[in-house]
């Protein structure tokens, strides 16, 4: 989990979960670009999310282009996840763009991307009601498993959960395979628990970074007098 300062972006972060690495870059709130001006909303901002995947991200080198259906789905899921949490009404007539690059793909791309986006939005200073943290949960026989890798993900039924850790509200739960309804609740509980742990980690990282910046801002101020003396 790192904040990766990118020169022109308002905020950016890279998240690594297992062998999956995803970087998220946030621009905005800004005036909508010419191509997305039609989406402008008069009373709030709109989120635009684009997901790309690096050519080397996947084993076997099968390249997915930007228009790939799976990536578009990920983008839509991220947009829907963040829309209720980001305080869009504070930034009317603007666009907040999130660009996501999958740098290494080994399962759990959606949840890694959601976590990276949370950090990047916080880094950009965009107001949010809470963090959103996300994890994938698999099911082996009756045992729920957290944070699946690529091979695991393709073999066992799994669920992706994103939640607001403070209230435990779930903003996203997607299931691509069928599971027994009795198992669902267990998986969800484990997932929310995992999201809380993740939240603590992310919070510590954000705090540390914020503290550093606050210190730096004061440092420059305090030392100028000393330097001239």
């Amino acid at each position: 989990m790192t904040f990766t300062p990118q020169a022109n972006a308002d905020g950016s972060a890279t998240m690594q979960q297992g062998l999956s690495t995803v970087s998220a870059t946030v621009f905005g709130p800004r005036e909508p670009r010419a191509q997305s001006r039609g989406m402008l909303l008069h009373d709030r901002a709109f989120l635009s999310v684009e997901v790309g995947e690096a050519a080397w991200a996947q084993q076997g080198g099968s390249k997915r282009s930007r228009g790939d259906k799976r990536l578009t789905e990920v983008a839509a899921a991220i947009r829907d996840t963040f829309e209720p949490v980001v305080m869009l009404q504070l930034y009317p007539r603007t666009e907040i763009s999130v660009y996501i690059q999958v740098l290494g793909s080994d399962g759990g791309i959606l949840s890694t991307a959601i976590n990276a986006t949370t950090l990047a939005l916080i880094d950009a200073g965009v107001a949010m009601a809470d963090y959103i943290t996300s994890l994938s949960i698999g099911l082996h026989l009756t045992q729920p498993l957290l944070d699946l890798s690529g091979p695991e993900e393709s073999d066992i039924p799994h669920l992706v959960v994103a939640c607001l850790p403070a209230t435990g509200k779930i903003t996203l739960a997607t299931l691509e395979t069928r599971i027994h309804v009795d198992r669902f609740e267990d998986m969800l509980d484990v997932g929310v628990e995992g999201c809380r742990v993740l939240h603590a980690e992310m919070q510590a990282e954000v705090r540390q970074r914020t503290t550093t910046i606050v210190e730096r801002m004061q440092m420059g101020q305090g030392t100028t007098a000393a330097v001239t003396a």
Binding site: P5, M219, G220, T224
Partner: peptide, 14 residues
Amino acid sequence: ARYSIPLTETLLMS
């Protein structure tokens, strides 16, 4: 800027 240090005249001069 990379290290989030606010700019002042004296800082630049020194």
